[in-house]
Amino acid sequence: MDRVAVIRERLEQTFAPTHLVVRDDSHRHAGHAGARDGRGHFSVELASEAFRGQAPLARHRAVYAAMGDLMQTDIHALAIDARLPEDTR
């Protein structure tokens, strides 16, 4: 399974998002020192009721927690846009 699919699966299982976009931005960081070890740069947009009552920092921490070991093995950088369903653009 590719990394985008694994990220998507973990986010879907953890947050049951009403909106989810996962992008692999690694091509934009070719040659970047942090990407030399093969880990990638990704961005996620997700909206979930699970974020209700959480401050932005808590939402980001929850997303990082959902990524678990991927943060050590597959993900070098993760840009996160985590919001409530009614805040979907």
Rank of each mutant, 00 (worst) to 15 (best):
L20K: 09
G34T: 08
G40Y: 08
S26H: 01
D69K: 15
A5G: 15
E49A: 15
R39E: 13
D25P: 12
Q54H: 10
A47K: 04
H60D: 01
I7M: 12
V6F: 00
H29M: 14
A33L: 06
D2F: 03
A55R: 10
E49Y: 06
A5W: 12
D87V: 02
M1L: 00
A30H: 13
A82L: 14
G53C: 05
D2A: 12
R36V: 07
G40V: 12
P17G: 10
G40F: 12
H27G: 03
A58S: 13
T14H: 09
A16L: 06
H60T: 01
G40C: 13
A65Q: 02
D24N: 15
H41N: 04
L84N: 01
L46I: 12
L70Q: 11
A55V: 03
V63Y: 05
L11F: 06
A16V: 08
R52Q: 13
Y64S: 11
E12S: 11
D81A: 14
L78H: 05
Q13K: 10
H29R: 02
S48W: 07
D87Q: 15
H60G: 05
F15L: 09
F42R: 05
H29G: 04
R8T: 09
H41P: 01
A30G: 00
V44T: 07
V21K: 08
D87N: 13
A82M: 12
I7H: 05
L57V: 07
Y64T: 11
M1Y: 01
A33K: 03
H41Q: 01
V63M: 04
V21T: 08
S43P: 02
H19V: 08
A5P: 12
R83V: 09
A62L: 11
G38K: 04
I80L: 13
I80D: 01
H19L: 10
A35E: 02
R10K: 13
A5Q: 15
V4E: 02
Y64Q: 15
M71L: 14
G38H: 09
V6L: 06
V44M: 01
L78P: 03
R61L: 12
A77H: 12
L46N: 04
V63T: 08
R59G: 00
V63Q: 02
M1V: 11
V6I: 01
G34Y: 13
D81V: 14
M67Y: 06
S43K: 06
R28W: 13
G38S: 10
G40Q: 09
R61Q: 13
R36S: 04
V6D: 07
I80G: 01
T18V: 15
